Simulated scan of single mutants.
Amino acid sequence: MHTHTITALPDIPYATPKLSSSRENLIRAGDHLWRVQDAAGRILGHLRIAAEPLGLRFRAERLHLASGAFRLIGEFWTADEAVQTLRYLR
Rank of each mutant, 00 (worst) to 15 (best):
S21D: 08
E81A: 06
S20M: 10
R90M: 15
F76K: 10
L54M: 12
K18G: 11
I12H: 13
A66W: 05
V83M: 01
E24I: 02
H46L: 04
G30D: 02
A29K: 02
A79R: 12
A82E: 00
R71C: 09
D80V: 02
L33Y: 09
I27G: 04
R90L: 14
Q84Y: 04
F58T: 13
Y14K: 04
R48A: 14
P13D: 05
R48K: 14
R90S: 15
L56R: 05
A82Q: 05
P53A: 13
A82K: 02
Y14M: 05
V36S: 01
I6K: 14
T78I: 13
L44G: 05
F76I: 10
A50P: 08
H32F: 00
L44P: 03
G41T: 07
E61D: 06
A69I: 06
F58H: 14
P13C: 02
L65C: 13
P13F: 05
Y88S: 11
H46F: 06
S22T: 01
A51P: 10
M1A: 07
R42G: 12
S22N: 02
D38M: 01
R48I: 12
P10L: 00
A50V: 08
H64E: 09
H4P: 10
M1E: 06
V83G: 00
G30W: 00
D11P: 09
N25G: 03
A8H: 13
R48E: 13
H46I: 05
A51L: 11
M1V: 12
P10W: 02
T16K: 00
E75C: 09
D31P: 10
T16M: 00
R48T: 15
R62M: 08
A29D: 09
G45P: 04
T78S: 15
I73C: 15
R23M: 05
Y88M: 09
H2V: 14
L65S: 15
A66F: 04
I43P: 08
L54S: 14
A66T: 09
T5I: 12
A29P: 10
D31W: 02
S20W: 10
F70S: 05
P17W: 08
L89V: 03
R48D: 11
A15R: 01
D11C: 08
G68V: 07
E52W: 11
R28G: 00
A15P: 03
A39M: 05
G74E: 14
I27C: 07
M1R: 09
E81N: 06
I6E: 12
D80W: 05
Y14D: 08
Q37L: 14
D31K: 03
L63W: 12
F76D: 05
A15Q: 00
D38A: 00
P10K: 02
F58Q: 12
E52T: 12
I27H: 04
L65I: 13
L19Y: 08
P17Y: 08
I6G: 13
T78Y: 12
L26D: 09
I49F: 09
D31L: 01
T7W: 06
R57P: 11
F76Y: 14
Y14C: 07
G30H: 02
T16E: 01
Y88E: 15
A40N: 15
R57A: 10
E24A: 03
D11L: 10
L47K: 02
V83E: 03
D11T: 04
N25P: 06
V36T: 03
T3G: 14
Q84R: 00
N25A: 03
V83H: 01
A50C: 09
G45T: 04
G55S: 11
F58K: 15
A15D: 01
L44W: 00
I27M: 02
